[in-house]
Every structure is written in C-alpha cells, then in structure tokens.
Design a binder for these strands. Sequence first.
DNA 1: ATCTTAACATACCAATTGGTATCTTGTAAA
DNA 2: TTTACAAGATACCAATTGGTATGTTAAGAT
Lengths: 215, 215
Amino acid sequence: MLKWSCMSRSRPAIKKRTRDPVATRAQILDVAFWEIYRNGFHHVSVNDIAEKAGLTKGAFFHHFPTKEALGYALVDEVLTRMVLERWITPLNDYENPLEGISANLKKIIDEMPEETLSLGCPLNNLVQEMSSVDPIFRDKLHGAIETWIAGVEKHLKRAQQRGYLKKETNARRLAEFVVMNHEGAFGMIKSVRDRRVFRSLHASLKEYLSSVQTA
Amino acid sequence: MLKWSCMSRSRPAIKKRTRDPVATRAQILDVAFWEIYRNGFHHVSVNDIAEKAGLTKGAFFHHFPTKEALGYALVDEVLTRMVLERWITPLNDYENPLEGISANLKKIIDEMPEETLSLGCPLNNLVQEMSSVDPIFRDKLHGAIETWIAGVEKHLKRAQQRGYLKKETNARRLAEFVVMNHEGAFGMIKSVRDRRVFRSLHASLKEYLSSVQTA
DNA sequence: ATCTTAACATACCAATTGGTATCTTGTAAA
DNA sequence: TTTACAAGATACCAATTGGTATGTTAAGAT
C-alpha cells in the first residue's frame, strides 16, 4: 500500500495500551482516508470505517460527532498536510523551482502504483464530490487548494528572484495554472487509466513552464 | 435555467397525450441530468427523480431496469452529445481552430450563470464520482472523454493543414492537454467559485496555445 | 485502594434506499 | 368496437443508513 508519509498510521506504540484515544483517532482518520479515497465519501458508511478500524460504531461517534465532522477533520488535518508534503515541501530541494515543479510531478507519477493511479487525487476527488453539496466542505477544501496555490506561488516568486522565471509573469496566475494542471491530470487519469496520458500531460506542462522560463 | 440545447426537454407536443413514453423517457433523463449534476449520482434517489419528473417510482423502473442503467444512458445519450455540441461543433465556425478553442471556452465561461459555474462540468463530476467505483461507468465515461479528445485532435490537424499550428506539434498530445485544461478548470472552479480564477486559467491556456501557433 | 472520567461496546431506532409484485388504464392496431 | 399490450400507479419489502441511549471497563488522579 502506498505510504502517505504525513499519516502516522499505528505509531510505534512504545507501550502497548488497550486504550489509546490519540492513536484510535488517527487510526479512524487513516482508515477513513483510504476508504473514502477508494470509494468516495458517500459510498463509505460509518460502519465500514469503524469495522475496518477494529472498532464499533459507538467508538466512532465518541471521536466524531457526525460523519461530516470526520470528513471535515480529514480535510483539515490530513489532506492539507498531504498537499504540503507532496507538492510544496519537495520544491525546497530544487535550486530552480520551475524545474522542481516538473521533476516532482514526474517523480510522483513514476512512483505511483497502477492501482493508486486510477484513484486520482484524494483532494480533487473530494472537491468534485462534496463542494457543490456541502458549503462547509467547500470552504475547507477551498482552504486546502488555496494552501497549494499559495505554496506554488511562493516558489514561483523565488524563481523570479533567482532569475529563472520572467519578471513580467504573473506568479499567482501561473500558480493557479500549475495546480489546475495537477488536479486536471489526476482527474483525467481516473477515466483514461493510462499512464501514457499522464506523461503526455506532464510533457505539455513542462513545455509550458519552459516557455515562461528566462532564456 | 441554463439550456443545454442537446436536451429535448418536453418537446412541442403537437397533441397533448396523457401517455407519451418517448417524452417520458426524455423527461426522466432531463430531470436526472440536473439532479445528478447538482447533487451527484449517489446523492440523488430514484424517488427524487421520479417525483420531480411527475412520475411514480414504478414508472421509472418501467423505463430503466436499474438506477445504474439510467446513469449509463445519461452518459451515452446525453453527456456524449453534450460534449460534441458544446466543445466540438462550435469549432467549425472558426477558420483558425486554435483561436476557436480559446474563444469558445471564453464564451462558455462568460455566458454561464454563477450558480451553474459552481457546479463544474457534468461529465467531469461523474468521472470523479463513478470511475473508480463502477467499471461500466468508467468505460462509458472514458468513451465520452475520448470523443472529446478525438474531436479536438481533428480540429488541431485541420489547424496544421491550414498552417495555423506548427507541423511538429503532436496533435493528439495537445488535444489531451486541451481537454484536461477544460476539465481541470471546471473542476477547480467548484471549490474556488470565483470567475476570475476561471479567466486566469483561460488566459494561461490561451497563452500556451499561442506559443504553439505558427508565427 | 478508590474514584472518576473518558474510551469503547452493545443494542437499538426511524428514515431512506433500490427494487419488486401487482394493479389499473390509455391507446394503437385489428 | 374489441382487444392486447405497454405505460404508468400503488403498495409493499429487505437492507442499509446515520445516529442515539445506555451500558461497561480501563487507567490516571487523589
């Protein structure tokens, strides 16, 4: 199973305790993440989550007042951090952020197993399913997207300072475009299910990025 | 309410008939389209659809054997045609297809009412919700996407023949990129809900298209 | 050692779901 | 005018849903 490093699934557990509310909550979020990632929010029942987390429904509702509350926590605590870890933090390793964006995307594509590939992007999935149906979900998901865009923008400005990106380029606009490309690519792969299309989209984005790069 | 011209909603009805199975079926598909567009497939019950179509559940199941069958018919009969009408056919009116792609997208964005804007793209919504959950849905949705890509590719080749697009550009790859940009933009707007972002994404795509255009 | 509280389990509930069995009735063909 | 069948209505069903009320027990504080 793919590791999303930001998830502290079943932490080392120095002492084996029969009751560990912090670990239990994390476990619920972990199970919920995968179930919802695979099947969508509505397709997953509280029973499913509780069962696969080795708990009863009563325990679940002790940690989360409603099913929606779990979804909100998932966005706030898991997805937002995941965005940072997958798409923003790695850019620090690149002297040239434009190259970093392209290389990081390629790396993710190449390393992602076939099954996970066809599941798309956890964040985008939730956006499409929940945004127009629940305003609280939308706000929180919007927050995660905004974090993503802002993070990219920050690195694009760094690129401008270091002379990799044309000064006249609107960093915010480009950041929006980059994020949209990521989500669009992951969205399309869900129906197409062909890694080549993913590479094709990556190539196009790379080409675009080099067109705004300083000669 | 926005008109999706491909939908034959409540046709002229020369003679007022109390029973008109063709119209009834179309009515069901029409209602189902909007309900599913607004709320997602799982969020809509057969009861909802039947009721809003002025029918009983029994009547619904007379026309469609299962709820899934309705969804399949929706993709095959409604969404695929919609894609052609909205994104492919209009390109015929443009001497330069590259300009057509950009102008058509802009036109759609400008004409789309605020409410509909935040609902995203009907096809993309369904892709994200159903593709990884139901293989038949995925195949049919994939078919619709493929129709879209192939349509754009055809026009891009026309652009190459007429000298608007560089000969060395891979038309298929560019078509995939264009479609992905459309779906990505509509997907992102669902959470962001800001027409400016839409215009920003459109501007970026336009810029990209002009970068592959012959001087 | 006891007490208290939170962590979890058990057992239930009303509402909703997709689906079916069975009925009435409109309508086109004969 | 009759007839045959499809179009649609009515009434029901088992399964599942999110959620609750109430029980039990582990474990840190005193």
